[in-house]
Design a protein around this nucleic acid. Structure first.
Length: 275
DNA sequence: GTATTTGTTGTTGC
DNA sequence: TGCAACAACAAATA
């Protein structure tokens, strides 16, 4: 499920429950998959008794920093979520990592196990964190950088290119469809075929969708929406892309679905032309 | 039983 | 070489 804004939502959920709180116990049931490459005994030693001091989300990843220099990285994969439960609640079948405070259980749950946990002990931020591409709302995410990337990926459909994290960090399947729909670009257009004005529109909508998604899904300041989708407007493609017989919120004409770039894609043929 | 899934990575082949 | 396409990973749901 989680893309840019959902990841920020989950980060805030743990943060609100546990910032400044001490970890009393760590539960991890190692499937070797999510924790591959992690020194589990070292993770337990470092986190038990440590205090959550800060957290940050970048693209689809989160970093939680603890006193003593422990740094916990989480990628939610396709089906991962972070939840907060009473400390008395026993871990469920798919709860791969649970951090307990005095009141709460901070749960990383992931049925499909495409997620990933990273652990690093030390002052410097680890490579798996620093190598994440510049954020969509940063000064480094320029229209020139996007244009150059599209030239390099000229023969791939633009839908597939938007999913490449090395240039579009945090964009996933629904955000990509939302961006292309707003920019009025057909998802099967080859990246190299976009005219400068179309590249400009794409770049602008990348920033616009990222900004609006963060504000509506992850809330502002101390406010966290009750559910991920609680405040997403009905005017977004988001709500209609899975509906059979769904209509484009802008043109009121039927939407279409097909596999493009290896992923199910929804677009509005009346608005997004192949040409 | 079949097909689907908001992600990433390794392999294959052009 | 660089890049594009695709299978694989695993489990729930329709």
């Amino acid at each position: 499920m989680p893309e840019l804004a959902e990841v920020e939502f989950f980060r805030k959920r743990w943060d609100h429950a546990a910032l400044g709180r001490r970890i009393t116990r760590v539960h991890a049931h190692d499937g070797k998959k999510l924790l591959r490459g992690v020194d589990l005994p070292a993770l337990r030693r470092a986190l038990t008794g440590a205090t959550l001091e800060a957290s940050e989300a970048r693209a689809k990843q989160m970093l939680f920093r603890f006193s003593g220099g422990a740094q916990l990285g989480i990628h939610l994969g396709m089906s991962g979520e972070l939840t907060v439960a009473p400390a008395t609640q026993p871990p469920g079948k798919h709860d791969h990592l649970v951090l307990f405070t005095a009141e709460h259980a901070l749960v990383f749950t992931d049925p499909r196990m495409f997620g990933r946990i990273h652990f690093h002990h030390g002052d410097a931020p680890p490579p798996w964190w620093t190598k994440i591409a510049p954020a969509l709302d940063s000064d480094e995410f320029t229209v020139e950088a996007v244009a150059a990337f599209l030239r390099r990926r000229a023969r791939a459909p633009i839908k597939a290119v938007l999913l490449m994290q090395e240039r579009f960090p945090g964009i996933g399947n629904w955000m990509a469809d939302e961006i292309l729909w707003r920019a009025a670009l057909h998802p099967a257009r080859l990246a190299g075929s976009l005219r400068p004005a179309e590249v400009q529109a794409l770049w602008r909508e990348c920033r616009g969708v990222a900004r609006r998604a963060l504000a509506t899904i992850a809330g502002r300041g101390g406010y966290l929406p009750p559910d991920l989708n609680a405040h997403i407007p009905r005017t977004w493609l988001f709500w209609h892309r899975w509906e059979d017989g769904g209509l484009c919120p802008k043109t009121k004409r039927p939407l279409r679905r097909a596999e493009i770039g290896g992923r199910t894609t929804c677009w509005s043929p009346a608005r997004q032309k192949l040409r």
